[in-house]
Every structure is written in C-alpha cells, then in structure tokens.
Design a protein around this nucleic acid. Sequence first.
RNA 1: UGGGGUGUCGCCAAGUGGUAAGGCAACGGGUUUUGAUCCCGUCAUGCGUAGGUUCGAGUCCUACCACCCCAGCCA
Length: 558
Amino acid sequence: MSAEPKKSNNFIRNMIEDAIAKGDHTGDVVTRFPPEPNGYLHIGHAKSICLNFGIADTFKGRCNLRFDDTNPEKESQEYIDAITRDVNWLGYEWDGEIRYASDYFDTLYDFAIELIEKGKAYVCALTAEQMTAYRGTLKEPGKNSPYRDRPVEESLQLFRDMRDGKFQNGELVLRAKIDMASPNMNMRDPILYRIRYAEHHQTGNKWCIYPMYDFTHPISDAMEGITHSLCTLEFEDHRPLYDWVLENTSVPCRPRQTEFARLNLNYTVTSKRKLKRLVDEGHVAGWDDPRMPTVSGLRRRGYTPESIRQFCDMVGVNRAGGTVDVGMLEFAIREDLNARAPRAMCVMRPLKVTLTNYPAAQVETLSLPVHPQDDSMGQRDVPWTRTLYIDRDDFAEEPPRKWKRLAPQQAVRLRGGYVITCREVVRDGQGEIVELLCEYDANTLGVNPEGYKPNGVIHWVSAEDSVEAEVRLYDRLFNHESPDSDKEGDLTDHLNPDSLVIVTGARVERALAEPRQDLPYQFEREGYFFLDPELSGAGRPVFNRTVTLRDSWGKGGN
RNA sequence: UGGGGUGUCGCCAAGUGGUAAGGCAACGGGUUUUGAUCCCGUCAUGCGUAGGUUCGAGUCCUACCACCCCAGCCA
C-alpha cells in the first residue's frame, strides 16, 4: 500500500524504529494478519489489519494474509471468502498468495516428530477429564501424566499411528514435555496435536490429526519469515510457549511476538462468538446486517474504507485495554462523507404543499450544486412545481421558540428554491393535517426577500417529479454501554428494539432515480444514506442510514 | 505473595527525570440558503493511592489499591 496517510506513532512502531536505528533489526519487516476462518471480520480485526499492513507499509516491508485453519469443525470456505473480500475492501494487499496454516501440516508433523525424538514431546492417553484433573489449578501445580516418560520410540510409533487413523477421536494426544508445576498454565505440558476425524476445507480428508494453535502459530510465522508477530493481549501468557516451540525445533528463523490491546467499542460487541450468536439466533439479518460491527455490516451501512482506517488511526495502539466511544467511529465517517458525499434531498414523511400562486402546468428546473463547498462535483437539476412535499416534522402549528422551519403565516426558504409562506392548513375528516396552502415569493430565487426574514431553510421535493424510496433508519444495536460485560443479564436483554426503523413512502429527488452505488449521499438536514445493494429493486431504491448529521438542536433525525 | 498485564481530562491517547501534546465529546462565540460544514475560544497546578530519592518525578524506588487475562483435545 502506498497511498496510506501518515500514521500516528505507537509503541510497536517505536520499537521497530529503535531496533533499526540500533542495528538490531536488519532486512525487511515482515508481518502477517492471521484470522481463523470461523466468522466474519469485525471492527476489532480492522484495527489489527491496519496495524499489520500499516507497519509493513511504513517500513517498506511485507504483510501476509494467513488463515489460521487448524480447527476444521468450526471453519468454512464461506468465511475465507468473506474475510478475503473484507481485507481487500479495506484497501490492503497481502504479499504473494494467500497462506494457510494448513499449507504447513506436513512441516508441522515433521517438527512434532523432531520434538518427540528430542524427548520434548510425548503421546498421552489421559482422557479429557483426567487431563483437567492432572493440570492442577491456578494456585496449585499439576502433576505429571503417567505417560510422560514413555520411551521415545513408543511415542514415535503411537504418533504415527494417530496420523494413520488407528485411534478414535480424542483417544490420544501429543503433548509437549515442559513443566506441570509451571505457574503459567500454558506451560503445563500443553497439547500439540489432537485426533479429529473431520474434513478440512483445504486439505480434505488427508489428516485425522490437527495441530493446536500454540504449536502451529510460531512455526507458521517462522516458515514465512515473519519478523514481528503481533497479537492481542490475551496471548501474552502464550509467549513463553511460542518461544519454547521456536527454540526446540529447527525452524529457519526466529520471529518475535508482541502483544497489543484489542479494541473495545461501547454499545456493541466485538467478539466473533457473540456476533455469531446474534446471527444464529436471528437477532440480526446476517453477518452483514448494517447494525453489525462487522466489516461487511459497516460496508453495507455506508462506511468507507477510508473512514475505518482513519478511525483505527485515531484509536491508537497500546497495551492499556480501554473502551472507545462509538461516537469516535461516527466522527470518522461524518468527516469523510462530509467532504465526499453528493448532496440530495429526501423527504421522509411527506406533507403536501400547494403553491397557490404558482401556475399548475409550470415546471422550473433549478440547478443546485452537488456539494455546497466543492464546485468540482458539479450541478444537478431539481424540478420546482406547484405541488411539493416537505417533511411533516418541518411544520408546526404552534412552533416552539427559535423554530427555524415552517409555521402558519410564517416563511421559510426551500433549499435551493424560493421562499414560501404558509397561508392555510388543510385537514381531513379526522382533523389530521393533509396539506398546506402556501404562497411562493417569485423574487427570492438566489436572493433574500425584501421586508421580511424567513425562519430558516428546509428541504423539499416536487410531488410529481420525485421518486418513492424506502429508507432504513439504523440506531445502535444495544442500548447498554457494555452489553456483554455485565452480570445483570444476557446480551440479548440489552438489544435496542428501535435499532431499525423502516420508513416507506419517502420521496427522493429525481436525480436519485438511479442512485450511485459507490458512496452514500448526504440527504440534507438528515444524514448520510447508502443504497442497499441487496434490498433495492429497479425503480425502488432502499437507502440505509449510515449516520445522522450532527445535530445541536433536538435529537437527530426521526 | 499462583502467573501475566494495565492504571495520564467524561472517552481515546502522547509523554522514556526538566516543569502535562493531540483527537472525540461537551460548552461558549462568529460565518452560513443544510439547526450540517467551516472558523475562533474554553476544557488535567493534575498523571490510581501513600510515602521516598532528586535542585526538579507522570517519568526512578517502596508499599498499597483497582481493573483485565489464564485451569478448551478453541484461536
């Protein structure tokens, strides 16, 4: 990546810079992004992606994409495809081909043999329950497995037999021989291989034994010449084991693991397990539901890759695990879209306005800028007719103080058009307001009226010459700041019942009959809205609200 | 005294002994045909607490306190 804006410094960048300055690090800086294909990427992964690819970029190194696929029962090609797409969409290119930990299954097997031959690993026949008992507790040491000192030749033969399918699921495991009394649970003779008769999405039925993460990861890193293996804080306790594996096998090089704090966002969850649950239980429409903090959800919502990268940069990287306010994410997308989004008008809840002094047959084509601060984006045509729609929320019979919209006998500017004054309110049999009879001031196009001052500016659309649209107003999925970290109840107790409000019968200006699909629009005075690629039909657009405009008046939007 | 971490403004975050950056939010004010944007201003004598070292400490030492992670044949 070359177009990456300059990145804020963080302790990892500083560490690498110092090492290069002191001559401790020579050669390329090589990182990797190593997702397990057991779910979709979320905003937390985006942080890791920006870090790994960003580091490689600033140090002119390389970054690999490697699927950590050692648990076939939880993984699938669907997830691989989604993850690959998301990384690309975020704007990153990995070095060479996509890698898979499963590419190294043969190598891994050989290194396991090496450990056994060195007397550093053994085949253990303890059951899962026995294993737990032997492991000890956090405060008490474990005790050695009775199989720990079995002869090397015996372990060697047993391990081959494991591979050759001579045992049942879970019957035997290969364990590292380290220290059952270690205060670090990960060092109490961790399992290296388990028997699992499962078809693997990459290797098919070639294997019935699969290596564990702690054995696979350091070796995969070494095989790829990774110099900086960056991971989240919960793996800190695994580092001694990561190092142990590298020290005790004849790997070609020596990567270093460095941990950083994972991203937490309030009012949402960033855990693949919990997100999967929301999908499986139907609380959302899928992994790419616009309310999901997944990369695909954010994309469908209208977030841009640039805004997500900017957000990750704002958040920073360190070892102090905090919780970032979603407001910062919203700021990032507003900042990007304010500069780039074409403007348009959309009336969510149409209220008919008849201009009594405007000829019925007349149509005037107004030319409005696509962006008020960027002339290079050009103009668009907006028809002005006798019958218009404004939003019901922009009219009040008894306006509050400082009302900047329409009210009886008061005037407002219609955005880009004329100033109108409301003369009469028309009601139906139920007493509901169905129409406003207004007069327009023909001398106010592009100039202020003489002798009076309009309240403000509201948006509008021609009644006949506009397009019907469905608009989906999204709000936060949870109404609890930390929906998953409290003891008060279940995650699903905190779902926001108003996280999706569907508005049908909205009207958008004619220019949006065929909306662009690459970037959201700003519906003026409302927010940013992105054409939903799944739900929109020909001539019937569906817009997802990406985010409201900042609003210093009341609560934003509808 | 299981082990490993982290504590700087409401939130994120710089700072590596020389006298507390920046961003978000908030709050004032100006511009404005989006109650948007933009502009200008305010916002930590204080860095988990208590001692200590030093001419000088967020940075060094000691002791506490709080929070997070670890007992999957998950990653």
